Computed example of a mutant assay.
Amino acid sequence: MNILFVCTDNYTRSVIAELCMRHYLKETRNASINVESAGIRATSDISKYSNVHFDIMNEMGIDTSCFKRTQFNVSCFDHYEVIIGMSELHRDHIKQTYNRDILLFNEVLHGQTVPVNVGHPDSPNFLEDMKQLVTYFREATPIVLQKLALHS
C-alpha cells in the first residue's frame, strides 16, 4: 500500500505524519507500506517557519534525514492508493482542483472531520504544542494503519 499525507506547505503536519509512520514501519519491519508526504503549495517560502518539530522528532529517535518537500499534483493519484489530508482546506482544494476525494487524518483516526491543527509560533506554548503534535501523530500511527487495513 502507498500512503500520501497532504498538508499546505509540506513542512509540518504532513511531514510529521510521514516521518512518524516511516519510523513505526521500520520498527515493526513492515516493508509492505510506502509512505510519503506532499503539499498543495509546497513551493511556498518556509523561511519564517519554525523547524522545532524536526528537533523534537530527532529527540524521540525518529529519523528526519529523508525529509524533502514535494508539490502535490495530479500524478499523486497514480502513485498512492490512500491520500490523507490534514484539514478541510486540503480536501476542498483537491476536490476543486482535481475533482477527487481524499480522506482526512482525524476522519481515519476518529471518524471526525476535525482538522489537525498546528500551534502558532508566537504562542508561549508553541514548543509544548509541537511536542504534543508529534506525539499525537506517533501514537496515532498504528491505529491509522490498522483502520486503513480494515478498509482495503
Rank of each mutant, 00 (worst) to 15 (best):
F105T: 05
C20H: 04
F72H: 05
H110T: 10
Q71N: 09
K48M: 12
V116T: 02
A42L: 04
T43S: 13
S65F: 09
T43N: 14
T12Q: 12
V6K: 02
R100K: 15
N73R: 07
E36N: 14
Y11L: 07
Y80E: 03
H23V: 05
M57C: 06
Q112E: 15
N106S: 10
S50M: 06
A17L: 08
E27I: 02
C20R: 01
N58K: 15
V52M: 11
M60Y: 12
R22I: 09
Y24K: 03
Y24H: 08
R41S: 11
S32W: 03
Q71P: 06
V118S: 15
E27G: 07
L89M: 14
I33M: 09
R91F: 02
F105E: 03
V74C: 11
I83Y: 04
I83M: 06
Q96I: 11
H93A: 04
H23M: 01
M21T: 11
N73K: 09
S65Y: 08
A31M: 11
Q96W: 04
A17D: 06
P115V: 05
R91G: 00
I56S: 05
Q71V: 09
N99Y: 05
F67R: 10
I102D: 00
S47W: 05
S37G: 08
E81K: 15
N117I: 14
R69L: 01
C7Q: 07
H23E: 08
F77I: 01
N30C: 10
E107H: 14
V74D: 13
S14I: 06
C76V: 01
S75V: 08
G61F: 08
E36P: 01
N99C: 11
N34W: 03
G61L: 08
M86V: 03
K26H: 08
V116G: 02
L19P: 04
E81V: 02
T28I: 07
H120V: 14
Q112T: 13
H110K: 14
T8A: 02
A17S: 11
A42F: 00
I56P: 05
I40F: 02
I83H: 01
M60V: 03
M60S: 13
K48G: 12
